[in-house]
Nucleic acid binder design. Structure first.
Lengths: 138, 138
DNA sequence: GTAACTGCAAAATATTTGCATCCTT
DNA sequence: AAGGATGCAAATATTTTGCAGTTAC
């Protein structure tokens, strides 16, 4: 098991349970974003659906994972890389959705550009999603 | 009633029904995006929830409205301005979500900037959502 | 030992589907 | 008149909540 799993949980003052270990490891292994259903599928229903809901919620609250905006009504989560702390997400990178394999990938090295807003609008946070064909599918 | 309602429906070869007229008019009047629940609320449940689902789906298929990406799990729809046609959305503008009034507004004049993607990624379409405080809430 | 986490059951919501009826063209 | 749209009922799917039992520390 990835040693990071333990340190991440410890750092966030979460007790180390099987469910959390397995789900967190899944995120660490996954190149892209995961939906609730992906997690149920990957873990082979080894625990209750409710536990998955609660674990994801806990991880989001602690800033371990974050929601990813999507254009197709689905709810995706991905690891917060870098220095995310509870309440302060710095996941200011572009997300890429592949139209072929349908995966969502965090482009950690591509930061969201600033845009000039109309008068009176005060920006706080930006999200950007690019769709197209990914590295593996061409 | 806004004369556009009829022309938009006609242009998309949709029969003109009360539900479609009222829902489309709601979008035309609204400065921002609407969720399914907003529509039910605004129309005072004058028609079946199922009809709202089907109408929204039809509008999306025809390219009259489009999904807006959100970070908070909600599903929002907004009018496609400009030259949207079925299957070819040109709604390449930035969306703004206000943290105060919670409204989502289409910034039709702010276009989504291009970003440089890692090698191997071929972009097709971009979405951008900026959150902050809107014109009315400061 | 205690607080926190999980599983189960069940409630509350949300979404989809089939079909008979009604409306638009 | 014919095809499409709606309403209703019901089937599915999704998410939330309460509580008792279990586990981590």
């Amino acid at each position: 098991m990835d040693i990071n799993v333990l340190s991440i949980l410890k750092k966030n003052q979460l007790s180390v349970t099987d469910g959390r270990k397995i789900i967190l490891e899944l995120f660490l292994k996954s190149p892209g974003a995961l939906a609730h259903s992906d997690i149920e599928k990957e873990t082979g229903a080894s625990f209750d659906r409710v536990t998955v809901y609660r674990t994801l919620q806990t991880f989001v609250e602690k800033g371990i994972i974050h929601h990813i905006p999507t254009t197709d009504n689905s709810i995706l989560y991905a690891l917060c890389k870098q220095d995310c702390e509870a309440g302060h997400h710095h996941d200011n990178h572009v997300h890429f959705v592949c139209n072929e394999c349908n995966k969502t990938i965090c482009l950690d090295d591509v930061t969201v550009p600033d845009v000039k807003l109309p008068k009176g609008f005060k920006p706080d946070h930006s999200e950007m999603v690019v769709s197209g064909v990914c590295h593996d599918c061409r």
